[in-house]
Nucleic acid binder design. Structure first.
Lengths: 342, 342
DNA sequence: CTGAAAGCGCTAACAC
DNA sequence: GTGTTAGCGCTTTCAG
């Protein structure tokens, strides 16, 4: 009933249908400049009846502005990143900006590719997880002239701005709390991910602080793949079989910690008396367990929000490169019911 | 050291640096047409030293082709959608196409807005969750002339193609299995989401099939917000306090089911003898519970993969509208340890 | 308040 | 194999 062929509608179609110049139609549709109410309503009516959807490609090319924010994360199934996304969406919701997500699967080559792909759309900003990137990736980001915010982690040299927590410090803080509570025979269970730098940094901060107190990790194990809850169970069973006199297990995430907690509870082991437990992230899930798992909040949503706010500020500001920010959040330690509070 | 000003590099810069025409540079960079090896390598070298990143905006406008697939989902934190995304990425990984995600928060107005926003980038295809959309949204999708695949659900009238499962049937199948196993006093616990049409359809299919067997739902409760695991616990406790002689609880998702399972296990209630349980989705998590929760696989990853494949096929095919497909997957019922298998 | 001209950076189509 | 010429659909800029 409108047009017979399949060609998408253009500004010109609206212009012809309304008898108003393309330029004025464009003004109405973008709410720019002064347009008389008569003209405005005529244009709006025409656009609506035709079902006109503007072509942002053309608009972006002409205006040299793209209202997209590239968000580059390692995975969507990690539970952590969806929450970061929530924070980003929250901050961007009232603005013109829109997030576009790219996933790297923790693989540097893929990160490079995704980054290249996204930069070629000339977004208004880039939010990228982690501080470890290939030289090529860093070069691209620098050369792009686009505001960049590295998120999650603050241990390293920033390309531009950073928002996150120090994972070394998080590991260290947890070690201190554990030592203070009197635990001495401590194991670490985590993901086998050479490329999960944040887990690695927590581990490093953890062991270093233990070392300073003259304590060495009693046992450790790393897994990959499968149901984290189940792996948590299995690793906990195995580690206790190997080292029966352990008195604490620090898990690299809450989900495997939950698995361990379920296993130990079923075995009738006294928590946190005989064995103490702690995870990491502060996910919602731990609230429904038989006992609340000790954990450290990774500030995911706030990180997303703050990072997005930085981009918004830069996008709004003058075209200068802007001043790089460095926002280091302080994670909260939750003792829950699995870590003695001295 | 390269250029002093902040202007992004253009094809022309590469052209000048290599002494080759813009057109040929363009050909090299896109691997199109025949270019002599000498020229090719000279261009590649120039592009690399300069750090040139092509401008896809301009490219897309000129070629009228955009290698983006719009994916519109209600939420990222639902655990279900990240897996759909995984399937989509998987299928798209070997192609030129790239997914771009938009989130609606289960709100029709937001869906309309996101859709408009994405369509204005003229993507090669749209993958959108659910079959319930506002008239305006359906009109936009129809008018766009872009291949559309509605996913997750197949109960309803498709705009174009569909890939999913019948949630009515899923609910009905579960009802049959429960009845067959001899349970008679049945409760339903779920999310309070008038806009979660899929959960609603499962509920309807469930109750209808029970009704045909002369059974009426004994009790029901709906929640919103908070930790699903915890809510599962609380609702289970409450429903059993109200209706102590229940012999089965059907949960609208695995997570609340897991909460219920933990609660009942702690209470020492015999599962599946005294009370049987079942969830929905078939998430990984259930494998680490004290007993494996009965559930029905929602085929998330396969749905994502198949939907993306449809888009790929259409994008590759001739420009015609193509033939709409209708792919109805058959979910598998897992009895686990919480539903008697007669 | 409205319009006309120029051009964003690239690629299709056609020369050579 | 390589170069030239026109735009893609919009917005910027400048006239009125």
């Amino acid at each position: 009933m409108t047009s017979q062929d399949n060609r998408p509608l253009t500004l010109r179609d609206v212009s012809e249908a309304s008898g108003v110049s393309e330029m004025t139609v464009s003004r109405v549709l973008r709410n720019r400049g002064d347009v008389s109410d008569t003209t405005r309503s005529r244009v709006l009516a025409a656009a609506k009846t035709l079902g006109y959807v503007p072509n942002k490609i053309a608009g972006a090319l002409a205006s040299q502005r793209v209202n997209l924010v590239a968000v580059i994360i390692p995975s969507m199934s990690n539970m952590v990143f969806p929450e970061v996304m929530t924070g980003i969406s929250e901050a961007l919701d009232e603005t013109e900006l829109q997030p576009v997500v790219g996933v790297t699967g923790y693989r540097p080559e893929k990160e490079e590719k995704v980054l290249y792909e996204m930069l070629s759309w000339r977004p208004s900003g880039v939010i990228i997880a982690g501080m470890e990137h290939s030289d090529a990736a860093r070069a691209m980001l620098r050369a792009s002239g686009i505001p960049v915010v590295e998120i999650m982690d603050t241990d390293g040299t920033a390309i531009d701005s950073v928002v996150g927590i120090s994972h070394r410090r998080a590991g260290s803080q947890m070690a201190k709390a554990i030592i203070k509570a009197g635990y001495r025979r401590i194991a670490f269970l985590g993901t086998k991910m050479p490329l999960d730098h944040r887990a690695r940094k927590r581990f490093e901060g953890f062991t270093e602080t233990l070392a300073k107190a003259g304590i060495e990790i009693e046992d450790r194990e790393f897994y990959s793949g499968g149901s984290a809850l189940k792996k948590g169970r299995e690793m906990t069973r195995d580690v206790l079989a190997r080292s029966p006199d352990l008195d604490f297990i620090y898990y690299s995430n809450d989900l495997i910690g939950a698995g361990g907690l379920l296993y130990l509870t079923e075995q009738g082991i006294d928590i946190p008396g005989q064995v103490g437990l702690a995870g990491f992230n502060g996910v919602d899930l731990i609230k429904g367990l038989p006992r609340e798992l000790a954990t450290m909040d990774s500030c995911r949503q706030e990180i997303g929000r703050r990072a997005a706010e930085l981009i918004v500020a830069r996008a709004a500001g003058t075209d200068g490169p802007g001043v790089p920010s460095r926002i280091v959040l302080e994670p909260t330690l939750t003792y829950g019911d699995t870590l003695r509070r001295l």
